[in-house]
Simulated assay, not measured.
Amino acid sequence: MTTTETVAGITLHRSKGEGTLLVLLHGIGSNAESWAPLMAVLPPALDVIAWDAPGYGTSAPVAPESPTPSDYAAALLRVLDALGHARVRLMGHSLGSLFAGRFAALHPDRVERLALLSPALGYGVTAGPLPANVQSRIDDLTALGPQDFAARRAARLVFDAENRPKVVEGVRRSMAAVNPPGYAQAVHALGAGDLLADAPRLTMPTLVATGLEDVVTPPDNARRLHAALPNPLRLAELPAAGHAMPQEFPREMAAILAETLLA
């Protein structure tokens, strides 16, 4: 059973067990709902939390208009402190990997194990305008509105989308629910982030996973990140998986996590 609670201004979707706390951070065009297929097949004893990131759903936004991943890491720290958890297993998907990596680099004592799925590496732009391909995300959402934005983009996240309509619909539904101001802040954080620069500081055992058909964050992103880690776990490459890997193959992902992140 999944419940919803608000902690330190952040909405959390929780499947509460008595075991290890696993924290899940979603991607840029998504929300906590994107983790539902995976949460449904994880061991019921786990205590699992998926956040609606700051500025998503009913979660309070971060303060800066143009934030960096450190601002989202600070929000996560406030949540964990309020919950009273000193150490967690942490997993991010896409932009969530950028946030998870930043948190783990800043607070390595708080992360027992780390998983970075379909990792967005960031662009390392801390001053000046965003790269055109990054700024276009904000411009497209502004021009189209969330519903049409999601309708145009959702299928690109799913490999063999025509034969996976339920997965595409789940991706579309989450994307259509984005709040434009919160999304714009997240885009700025994507532009400012640099996961490869953080990688040498990720001293905890770290899993990296990618879909071999991912055209959003290609497999080479994951390979470069895995090679830069000081304490890598498995580099998991899922054939026939696109960017929405946890939604496309939740049981396969759960099995990989059982052998690595949750071992």
Rank of each mutant, 00 (worst) to 15 (best):
V215T: 15
G101N: 04
T126F: 04
P64I: 11
E248Q: 08
R164T: 06
R102W: 03
L95K: 10
E213H: 13
I49M: 13
P64A: 11
V167R: 04
T210W: 04
D140S: 14
V79D: 02
D71N: 10
I10M: 09
P205G: 06
T4V: 15
L202A: 02
M175I: 05
G101R: 02
E252G: 12
G193I: 07
L80E: 03
A86C: 08
E5D: 11
A177R: 12
Q135R: 15
L190C: 08
A241S: 13
R156A: 15
G27W: 03
R224T: 10
A184C: 13
G92C: 06
A222L: 09
T217R: 02
S136M: 14
L95G: 04
Q185M: 11
L12I: 06
P146T: 13
P250D: 07
S174D: 10
I10G: 03
A150H: 07
R164A: 13
L98V: 02
D160T: 01
H188G: 06
A104T: 07
L98F: 01
S94Y: 07
L22P: 01
G55Y: 03
A161I: 08
V171N: 02
P67N: 04
R172Y: 12
A82R: 09
A176I: 09
V88N: 00
R78F: 06
L144G: 00
E252K: 08
N221W: 06
N231S: 14
L98N: 00
A240P: 00
S136G: 13
R110F: 04
G128L: 08
I10K: 02
E112G: 10
G96K: 10
T3R: 14
T4W: 01
A53F: 07
T6I: 14
E237C: 09
M91T: 08
P246V: 10
D214K: 11
H93A: 13
